[in-house]
Computed example of a mutant assay.
Amino acid sequence: MPGLIPCPPHIWLAVSPVDMRKGADGLSAIVQQGLGHTPCAGSAFVFRNRAGNRLKLLLWDGNGVWLCQRRLHRGGFVWPKATDSCFSMTPDEWRWLVAGVDWQRLSAAPAAHWQP
């Protein structure tokens, strides 16, 4: 996350959709009670709405909290279909996610059997 927001050591996706009206305090409560993480440990937490076209990013940086929102005008964000409540992703996967690209397919290995 270039610019003013520091690059966090961990980026976590909250798999279940949340109410986008929630602010920093409401989302921090979800991180602590629902996901079992400490919201102020320096990790970033990403939430999405039910429709899948909006994201909110929560990041405590030591001085305060960042709460950012992104909305796609067409389509939706690709989200994991994990059974866990929280999913970890790399900074590269994060960049592809916010661009609206299917980041889960980018790491797929090519077919191993090639025939001339």
Rank of each mutant, 00 (worst) to 15 (best):
S88I: 03
D84Y: 10
W114A: 09
F87R: 00
V31C: 00
N53E: 14
G75F: 00
G3T: 00
C7K: 12
P116W: 06
K81C: 05
R21C: 09
Q69I: 08
K56E: 03
F45A: 04
V101W: 05
L57I: 15
S85Y: 01
G52Y: 00
H37A: 09
Q104K: 12
A44K: 02
C7T: 14
V31I: 14
I30V: 05
Q104C: 09
R21F: 08
L13C: 12
T38E: 15
L72D: 01
L55Y: 01
D84F: 11
K56R: 07
N63Q: 12
T90F: 08
A112K: 03
Q104A: 10
F77N: 05
G42H: 01
H73A: 12
D19L: 02
A109D: 10
S107G: 04
S85A: 12
S16N: 06
V98M: 12
E93N: 08
P80I: 04
S107N: 03
D92I: 09
N53S: 12
D19S: 06
Q115I: 10
D25V: 08
L13Y: 11
W60N: 13
L13S: 05
A99K: 12
V31G: 00
C40N: 14
A112Y: 05
W103S: 07
L97Y: 06
G76T: 15
Q32A: 15
K22A: 14
A109R: 11
P8G: 07
V31A: 01
D61S: 08
G26W: 06
D92V: 08
Q69A: 13
G23P: 03
K22G: 03
M20C: 08
G62E: 10
S85E: 01
N53F: 11
N53V: 14
L58V: 13
I5S: 06
K81T: 07
P91E: 14
M1I: 05
A111T: 06
V46N: 03
L72N: 00
R50P: 09
H113N: 10
P91N: 12
P8Y: 01
S28M: 04
Q33D: 05
L13D: 15
W60I: 04
